[in-house]
Simulated scan of single mutants.
Amino acid sequence: MDHSKHTPLPRQDLNEAVLTDAPIYDTADRKIGTISHVHKSGDLTEVVVDVGGFLGIGAKPVLVRADQLNLMRDEKGKVHGVTSWTKDQLKDLPEHKH
């Protein structure tokens, strides 16, 4: 996937309505998680990324600051994120308890 043509999300789009269910990819474009929940908004936005599992079952929720992800829209308007972290690095983060 060529992310160079994708538009970075503006700060006002860092909210629950826009980010929920957005897939997160590693630098090799492998899906490594999905945003399941959003805390706060704007510059302070934190997202819960469900990592691992199958169809949401057995996934581990981890809390990540939104500014640690490259959140963007593709040419069709679909929101997604890219991170330099690996799936294993995300899984090593502490489990987020709602």
Rank of each mutant, 00 (worst) to 15 (best):
K31Q: 15
T27D: 10
P23G: 06
L71P: 01
L9I: 02
K31F: 09
D21P: 01
K5M: 07
G81R: 00
G42M: 08
V51R: 00
L63K: 11
Q68L: 12
V38Q: 01
L9H: 02
I57K: 15
L93N: 03
T20A: 07
D92N: 12
D92K: 09
T45S: 05
D26A: 09
T86C: 04
Q68E: 10
G52D: 06
R11N: 14
K76V: 12
E95I: 12
G42E: 06
G77I: 03
L90T: 00
I35Q: 00
V48G: 09
V38L: 01
D29M: 12
V47F: 01
S36W: 08
A17V: 08
N15I: 11
T27C: 13
M72W: 04
A22C: 07
V38W: 00
L55Q: 13
R30L: 11
S4G: 15
G52M: 07
D43H: 07
A59T: 06
H3Q: 13
G77N: 03
S36N: 08
L71S: 04
D26T: 06
L55N: 13
G53S: 15
I32K: 04
D29L: 09
A28N: 10
H37M: 10
P61A: 00
S84K: 13
Y25A: 11
V18I: 11
N70T: 12
D67M: 12
T20V: 08
V62N: 03
G33E: 01
I57V: 11
A17L: 10
R11L: 15
A66Y: 00
K5R: 15
Q89S: 04
S4Y: 04
G33P: 03
L90R: 01
G52L: 09
H6R: 06
K78I: 15
A66D: 02
D74L: 05
D26K: 02
T45Q: 05
G42S: 06
P61V: 00
Q68A: 11
K76D: 14
D13V: 03
D67L: 15
P23E: 09
H80N: 06
T20W: 03
S84L: 07
I24H: 00
A28C: 10
D92H: 08
K97P: 04
T83E: 00
L93M: 08
K87I: 09
T20R: 12
D29T: 05
Q12T: 15
H37I: 08
T20I: 09
L19C: 05
I57Y: 10
D2Y: 02
G81A: 05
T27P: 05
V47E: 06
L93Q: 06
G53D: 07
N70G: 14
N70H: 15
H37Y: 14
E46Y: 13
H3V: 15
L44A: 13
H37R: 10
